[in-house]
């Protein structure tokens, strides 16, 4: 007896058997009329799905543009070393943030103008988070305070005039994205604190440390957000690092040459007061 596979092949080649599985399937498929109502339903569905996917792709692209530019702005904000150069940097950063708001972020708003909010949330969340990181870092450096969620949302409102029609447009920024971006801010502040040690500005280092602590304390109190909980370990690591850096500055500050010392630094050693009560949480 030949193996079954061989037998089957031989059979198909040899006789004109019409009742094979494949032939029955083919027969049914070809007997479909091209203009059947079922196909019309599916053509309509295909159109809807394609529209949705295309929009999604466009939003992912825009979100990536926002991410890249935001990262560059953050990098720019880290770069100045002297007080004078930081003035210039702040102006440039403000300018670029404004361009971002009027460019890709506005386009996101236009894309989403007629579709339900949150449908494409996943496409844009990365961009929004990075943008918030840049925007809050800028506000912290320029105004010494963190810009609040309603304030940022207000910045994303536009008035559009086309063909004598005036309408207002809002790029919906989910509050959760704002909070996630803020969690990332602790990482930037940590970097900033450590940079400011090397440039000798210990006052700034302490300030940054204080903000990181406040933020971390705030996050510990939040319940009910799974995404935030996922970021908490990173935030905790940032708090640790920045506190260790401040501690080192205090303890070993006495060994640094005098001009680099902060005015408040005591000549003799005293217990490191910067190990805050936050430490009790882990």
């Amino acid at each position: 007896m030949p193996p079954p596979g061989k037998h089957y092949r031989g059979n198909r080649k040899g006789s004109n058997q019409t009742h094979t599985l494949a032939s029955v399937a083919r027969e049914t498929a070809t007997s479909l009329p091209a203009d059947s109502p079922v196909l019309a339903i599916f053509k309509d569905a295909a159109r809807k799905l394609n529209e949705r996917q295309d929009r999604h792709e466009r939003l992912v692209k825009l979100s990536r543009d926002v991410t890249i530019e935001s990262k560059r702005i953050i990098f720019l904000l880290h770069s100045p070393i002297t007080k004078e150069s930081s003035e210039n940097t702040l102006t440039e950063a403000k300018d670029r943030v404004q361009k971002l708001i009027n460019g890709p972020i506005k386009s996101i708003g236009l894309e989403l103008e007629n579709s339900p909010a949150h449908l494409h949330g996943r496409a844009v969340t990365a961009g929004f988070q990075e943008f918030i990181e840049a925007r809050t870092l800028l506000s912290l450096m320029a105004e010494k305070r963190i810009i609040t969620y309603p304030e940022v949302q207000k910045e994303l409102e536009y008035d559009i005039t086309d063909d004598d029609n005036q309408r207002s447009l809002v790029t919906m920024l989910p509050e959760s994205d704002y909070m996630l971006g803020l969690a990332d801010l602790t990482g930037e502040l940590m970097r900033k604190a450590i940079n400011s040690i090397s440039s000798g500005d210990s006052e700034e280092c302490f300030q940054a440390c204080q903000v990181v602590r406040h933020l971390y304390t705030g996050y510990l109190g939040i319940t009910g957000s799974r995404l935030l909980v996922r970021k908490l370990p990173t935030t905790r690591a940032n708090v640790n690092k920045v506190e260790m850096a401040v501690y080192a500055l205090k303890v070993r500050g006495g060994e640094t040459p005098a001009p680099l010392l902060l005015p408040a630094a005591p000549a003799e050693w005293e217990p490191p007061i910067n190990l805050s009560d936050d430490e009790g949480y882990y």
Partner: peptide, 16 residues
Amino acid sequence: ENHVINTLFTDFQSNM
């Protein structure tokens, strides 16, 4: 600064 941050988090928590 602390006050601003506190409001920020309490607002978020009440929205949550």
